[in-house]
């Protein structure tokens, strides 16, 4: 830039004025550039990590999906076989249907429970600190550990749940919660996820609730709004960005469910609780066909991206 300055046809005063308007006199321009280089240097580790471990695998998974790619041995181009085979795969179809069903069920239940908890602990009242800690505590247990915990909790050998329900007369005889029927296996996983994630979801909703100014509630109270009206007309609309964030996280998490079914139900009984990510794992490391696993991944990825873009679009239009 500074080498071009002599060619600038404008009078000196105008140039100085223009420069001062940009608040960047020529002498400081070099400093600004040096500072930009410094910033880029500090961002370099992030750029390398994102480039090598995120963007490269993203391209690679697309590339792999076009090949017959065995776990060992050289890949050969076979496009579009991996994709056309997806629709013939009976397991993929049942897993896709199951995953969709699970996502809807889980999102609705988790949202209702977490919102309820957030409303319960939003104000400073006696025992609220204890409640918050109790709801957040499961978050400290890893999800795989939590799945094992529930495997024991729901087992007939050492778990108290069956005994408790029997003594209350709700069930009789032997019930195998995690492998008896697809419905009870799904129910077990739902309870596990509610326990593990309700507190975390509550925490995010709480940040949104507390960002609503108290005066707004005060005004509603003066206008004589009922509790329900206040919730419908003030809390929910003002919480929209937070709700959108929570919904996105819950839906994405549910579509990618793995640990709970892999550990708790083993995908059974009769593949009744086999999720899409479990099928990807099975294609890659049990059937040793990485190309087919990559193709299913790409389809799942496309669904997620479309979903997130639509969601963001809706959110932007509304706000």
């Amino acid at each position: 830039m500074s080498t071009l300055t002599p060619l600038d046809p404008r009078p000196v005063t105008t140039r100085a004025l223009a420069a001062s308007r940009r608040e960047r006199p020529p002498a400081r321009r070099g400093a600004a550039r040096r500072r930009a280089m410094l910033g880029a240097a500090y961002a370099a580790p992030t750029a390398v990590m994102v480039g090598v471990f995120f963007l490269a695998p993203l391209v690679l998974v697309g590339w792999m999906s076009l090949h017959r790619w065995p776990l060992l041995g050289p890949p050969t181009l076979n496009a579009p076989d991996n994709y056309s085979r997806i629709s013939d795969n009976e397991l993929v179809r049942s897993a896709a249907w199951f995953t969709a069903k699970y996502t809807v069920l889980m999102t609705v239940l988790l949202f209702v429970v977490a919102f309820g908890l957030a409303l319960l602990v939003q104000q400073r009242r006696p025992a609220v600190g204890f409640m918050r800690t109790a709801f957040l505590m499961p978050m400290a247990v890893g999800f795989a550990s939590a799945s094992l915990l529930f495997l024991g909790l729901l087992s007939d050998e050492i778990g108290p749940v069956s005994d408790l329900l029997r003594s209350l007369g709700i069930i009789d005889g032997y019930v195998s919660w995690t492998s008896g029927s697809p419905e009870s296996a799904l129910g077990s996983a739902v309870v596990l996820v509610l326990w593990r994630f309700a507190g975390f979801t509550m925490l995010i909703l709480l940040t949104g609730l507390q960002a609503i100014p108290l005066e707004v509630y005060e005004a509603a109270r003066i206008d004589g709004a009922t509790r329900w009206q206040t919730f419908r007309r003030i809390t929910v609309p003002l919480m929209r960005p937070t709700i959108a964030l929570v919904l996105t996280m819950m839906i994405t998490g549910s579509l990618l469910a793995f640990d709970q079914f892999w550990i708790l139900t083993r995908g059974g009984p009769d593949n009744g609780t086999t999720s899409l990510v479990m099928v990807i794992y099975r294609e890659a490391f049990i059937r040793l066909d990485l190309g087919s696993a990559a193709a299913i991944s790409v389809v799942l990825l496309a669904i997620l991206v479309i979903f997130n873009v639509v969601q963001l679009g809706v959110l932007r239009r509304r706000s």
Binding site: P57, L58, W69, G253
Partner: peptide, 23 residues
């Protein structure tokens, strides 16, 4: 770069771990 970094959240990792294994 900031947007691409945040996009990692939108592309959850089960879908790219197969490629990471090869990489």
């Amino acid at each position: 770069l900031f947007l691409v970094t945040l996009a990692i959240l939108m592309v959850p990792y089960a879908t790219i771990l197969i490629a990471l294994y090869v990489l």
